[in-house]
Design a protein around this nucleic acid. Structure first.
Lengths: 177, 177
DNA sequence: TATACTATACCGTCCAGTCGGTATAGTTAA
DNA sequence: TTAACTATACCGACTGGACGGTATAGTATA
């Protein structure tokens, strides 16, 4: 029967990311999210009583998705897991990341958990690396790719991106202890 | 007597970046820019007839500053010039970059010139490299650093950033022909 | 009936852009 | 030299629309 009443929240979250992807973070309004989710403004406001709550929801969905994959990265290193799990040809991947843009525009404070997350990952990656600086460079490249992807600024094909990711995985494997 | 009131336009541009840095791209209003620049809304609107014009102005100021430095990078490679000229401890550097966030929020189309710029740089860097993929990784790391800096998301000290940049310069020097 | 959810009408605020006006410096010319 | 005129820079009241949030009434289902 899957009441799917629980799903409505994530439906709305998804719709929000789509709005940002299609029209920009500045056009993220409760109305536009409602339309995209196929419901009314009241419906959205029932699930997320304020716009801030919506932004928080998007951000925490993004972080928990990333974290999920870090843990499911099985036997490889954290860095390898991160590199290996990101798929930039996946539209929903990009869309979720866009929460960062929306939050930074409207409520920069909401990015604090994201910063904490980066600190954590940095620590973890440094701990397992022979060459922490090189590991950081790879992390930065990964995030650079994420941001450029978010803004549709990547100046080469997705095939080239894939081969780049492979190369990065290779370097990561070489230098992990 | 050098009233120097003739560069009001760049004054306003500067004020706009400060507003974004202090309050976020979503709070970038003509009024707030006017206040920051020490004038009235009408005054800002005189120099930039629409908000779009203001955004365009910020973006083109950013691109021409970067381009400037690429050309003044003298005898080194393009990649080295880019790596060497960026100073992330400089506040104004970060502020100017924030134009990207504002534009992406309000008028994503305005980022087209930025994309064209990245394509150009990528071509140039690839041409002079023995190992184009490695060069791309460095470029990505540089942009990753820019974005994380913009969002105040860098999880380590500015000293660590400096040593990272040195390392990146080293790699770039090793692999340039 | 109660709970979970959705729709609609409405309010107050914020904001981009308009417009009539002021101030001032320069230019022309009687 | 002074009156008439023009250009540039700026001010601030106002308008119309968009948006966040509230209130409330309705529907479906268990």
């Amino acid at each position: 029967m899957s009441t799917r009443s629980n799903n409505q929240a994530s439906n709305i979250l998804l719709a929000a990311t789509e709005v940002i992807a299609q029209r920009g973070a500045g056009k993220l309004t409760i109305e536009s999210v409602a339309r995209q989710a196929g419901m009314s403004k009241g419906g959205v406001l029932y699930h997320f009583p304020t716009k801030d709550a919506l932004l928080e929801g998007m951000l925490s969905a993004l972080l928990s998705k990333i974290d999920d994959r870090r843990e499911h990265g099985s036997d490889k290193s954290v860095l390898s897991a991160l590199l290996g799990s990101l798929d930039f040809s996946d539209q929903s991947e990009r869309n979720m990341s866009l929460a960062i843009l929306a939050a930074s525009a409207e409520r920069p404070e909401l990015l604090k958990p994201a910063k904490a997350y980066f600190q954590q990952v940095t620590r973890d990656v440094a701990r397992e690396s022979k060459d922490p600086d090189l590991a950081k460079i790879l992390m930065l490249a990964l995030e650079g790719l994420r941001f450029m992807h978010m803004l549709d600024l990547v100046p080469w094909s997705s095939n080239q991106t894939k081969s780049l990711m492979k190369r990065m995985l290779l370097i990561a494997a070489e230098e992990s202890s």
